[in-house]
């Protein structure tokens, strides 16, 4: 593994016992993607969501670079920054070092889902509900997806913020009120195999 060679502490944790003070360097793959960052700030200046972020994109990349330290990793996953990325690819396009920034953010989202699920609650439930609808039917049933989302968030008040739009869409016959159904599971083998291969890599 390339990263492990460049990064002896991370390597050693795989061979010795994991202890709270010596955790795996979960940011290593992302760091490898963006290590040529020169901290110029072009990404921050390009980001349409920067105004709402607690840490700027540039600051986030700095934390990834320094994130071998566990407290910084922890702090990074406490920020709203990467969950506010809407994948517009503007920063990727403009970064003078040509770094794959949007893909690196996707990688951060996946690491958060795996290692800090409680911090990504809303996004995780949103996407998981969507995929559940796909797995069941092969395609998304938009109403079912929202129902699954609300159910998994266990927040009965949430749907109210969507109610006005949902009513307008129903009036146009674009969505039908409905409850989740089991579907035919047509894509089960695809979901299973992808998960299996991903876990073994």
């Amino acid at each position: 593994m390339k990263t492990a060679q460049k990064n002896p502490p991370a390597h050693s944790v795989h061979s010795v016992h994991k202890t709270p003070t010596n955790p795996p360097d979960i940011l290593a793959p992302v760091r490898e993607m963006i290590q040529a960052c020169i901290q110029c700030g072009t990404c921050t200046g390009s980001c349409p969501n920067a105004f709402a972020m607690d840490i700027s994109p540039r600051g986030m990349w700095r934390m990834v670079i320094m994130g071998e330290d566990e407290s910084i990793t922890e702090e990074l996953f406490n920020t709203k920054t990467f969950s506010l990325c809407s994948s517009c690819y503007t920063c990727t396009l403009r970064c003078p070092r040509g770094l794959p920034l949007t893909d690196a953010i996707q990688a951060l989202k996946r690491i958060q889902t795996r290692h800090y699920p409680e911090k990504a609650k809303k996004n995780i439930h949103f996407y998981a509900s969507f995929l559940e609808s796909v797995r069941r039917h092969g395609r998304v049933r938009e109403t079912e997806f929202m129902t699954l989302f609300f159910l998994s968030m266990k927040n009965p008040f949430l749907p109210f913020s969507f109610a006005p739009l949902a009513i307008r869409l129903m009036a146009k016959g674009k969505v039908k009120p409905g409850f989740p159904s089991a579907g035919n599971g047509a894509l089960d083998p695809i979901f299973q195999k992808a998960r299996e291969l991903e876990a073994s890599s």
Binding site: S87, Q106, K109, R110, T113, N123, I124, F126, Y127, A128, F130, L131, V134, V140, I190, F191, A194, R195, L197, E198
Partner: peptide, 12 residues
């Protein structure tokens, strides 16, 4: 897969 699959698993 829309944007959901990317956040959940790259291969999927």
């Amino acid at each position: 897969g829309a944007s959901a699959a990317a956040a959940q698993g790259e291969l999927l």
